[in-house]
Each structure stands twice: as structure tokens, then as C-alpha cells.
Amino acid sequence: MARVIVVTSGKGGVGKTTSSAAIGLGLALKGNKVVLIDFDIGLRNLDLIMGCERRVVYDFVNVINGEATLNQALIKDKRVSSLSILPASQTRDKDALNKENVGKVLEDLGKIYDFIVCDSPAGIEAGAMMALYYADEAIVTTNPEVSSVRDSDRILGMLASRSRRAELGLEPIKEHLLLTRYSPKRVEEGEMLSVEDVEDILSIPLLGVIPESQAVLKASNAGEPVILDTMSDAGKAYQDVVDRLLGETIDFRFLVAEKKGIFSRMFGG
């Protein structure tokens, strides 16, 4: 049975799409059949981060409305054949998705794929609720910053009350904390919430810490998910996330700032 994973956050701009792309591609590189779904109806962007924006013909809403089959709408990734992308529609028809028709699409996809990764829109409106409704697991993407942490907590409340698992009284959604844009140096200087602080407040298990990295912008510029940049800290950290999702136990990296030499400490710089 497919694992349905929602990448969610509440707050916008914290790295949901970047994370969805990196994790989806990483899972596929490990030999899993993966489909990435963009739930951000009206603001399609996953295609751009994945670098397949020019190959979009049909989208999620076309499939829902019966204007295209799933096979017509799914875009096969050029780098990894076991990865497909289902793009969001660019029209503003937000009411196109409902529990019934989304459930049907996920059911069909679940017959083919091992992982269904749902990239949620920001906010707590219908679109975000739709993205999390069928989830088995949730990757709660959070920046070490007050508004992001607060919004993540609200999303945790939604996961516990508004999902299918909650409504049917099934085992709750498995929650994972993904801390992004982490800067160990600023944490050490007391300017940024630490991993432990955020874990304390949200009290959900930590899946990964992605350090603030220039590689992320470069990756989105190029349409190559950052996990492919195997030399970068962010790429390595996402690789660890993927391995943990697949059941491996891996120590957390990039949690401490690189130590400055004694000379630069004494003379500034």
C-alpha cells in the first residue's frame, strides 16, 4: 500500500515545495515509485522546482473533471523514471477538489506508486485541508522563527482533528518535524531558536534539519531539486531525511557552526 505523505506548514515560504521536490526525487532515486502532487491550485510551482514546467499539458483539475486521464496528466521525470509529477491547475477554480474526487485519484495512484507526496498550499483553507485529508504521514516544515512555529502548531491541530484518520478514529497521522533554513551560527549567538527549542514547543519527532544554504536558490533557478547537489549541505541533509523516511537511523548533521580559527576570532573577520 502506498504511503501518503503531506508536506505542510501553515505558513508560506518556509520550503514546502523545495522539500517536496527534494524528498520525492530522493525517494525515487532509492528505487521507489513516487508521485508528487501539487495541491496548490491556482499557484502551480512544483513543476518549476522540478524543472518540468514546459511539459505540463494536463493538470490535477483536468483529471478530476474527467478532461484527461491520470496517464495523460502525469509527467514522467527525465532524471528518474520511477518519479512522476501531477501538476496543479493554474485556474482559480478552488472548489474543483473535494474529498470524493481527490480520494478517487489517490486511490488510483496508490495502486501504482509506493509513495504519494502531497505538496500542500500555505494557509488553513480548503486547499491545505484537502492536501492533508488523506495523509498517513505529515512532514511539518518549519523555520526556526516565531510565526512559522506557531502556524505549524495550528497545522498539527488540523492533522489531529480534520484528517480522514481523525474522522474515522484510525491511528493518527504520523507527524515529522522538518526544520528548514537553520543557521547553527545564529543559534549559537542566541539569535535563532534551536532545534531543541522547536522540538520542545511542537513536541513531535524530528525528521531532519536543513541548514540555510545558497544551494537551495541555485537549485530552484535550475529546476534541479537540491538533493541532486550532493556536495551541498542542504542536499546532504535532504538525503538524510529520505534515508530516515525509509527507516534508517542516521545522526543529525549540520547542527553546529563551523569553528573559526583562533586568529579570526581574535582579530575579527
Binding site: 522563527e145 516565531v146 506557531r150 543559534v187 539569535e191 531558536l193 520542545d200 514547543i201
Partner: peptide
């Protein structure tokens, strides 16, 4: 008293 510890305290209360 760092800004990070202020942030944590405020968050704990509001959350």
C-alpha cells in the same frame, strides 16, 4: 537574555 530565549518563552505561552 537572548532574543532566541525570548522567542521560545513567547511561543510556549501562546502555543
Amino acid at each position: 537574555v537572548t532574543t532566541a530565549s525570548k522567542a521560545k518563552e513567547r511561543l510556549q505561552i501562546i502555543v
